[in-house]
């Protein structure tokens, strides 16, 4: 079983799903058994999702898209 420090080291690799299936499962097992780590991971996951949502609200201006289409035809 991984301890809290070992799980902390894998925080982002776990949230980014960049660990091997075995390591993903090992972190998951720790989180299931350790509420403090679980709450922290949930916070970090929500944080990442929120940052992504904020930045993704930006859209390209329509006239830029038009200009790019014209560029393609020239």
């Amino acid at each position: 079983m991984l301890n809290c420090n070992e799980v902390a080291e894998r925080l982002y690799s776990y949230l980014d799903r960049e660990l091997s299936p075995e390591e993903m499962a090992a972190v998951q097992r720790h989180l299931d058994a350790c509420p403090p780590c679980r709450r922290w991971f949930v916070f970090e996951e929500n944080m990442l999702r929120y940052v992504g949502e904020c930045a993704r609200r930006v859209r390209a201006p329509d006239e830029l898209t038009e200009r790019i289409r014209e560029l393609r035809q020239s």
Binding site: A55, V58, R59, A60, L64, I68
Partner: peptide
């Protein structure tokens, strides 16, 4: 090229940041 243009929102928000 049409598929490339479909990614314009993503490219623009990156460029803006």
């Amino acid at each position: 090229s049409e598929e490339a243009i479909s990614h314009i929102d993503a490219l623009y928000r990156m460029a803006l940041r």
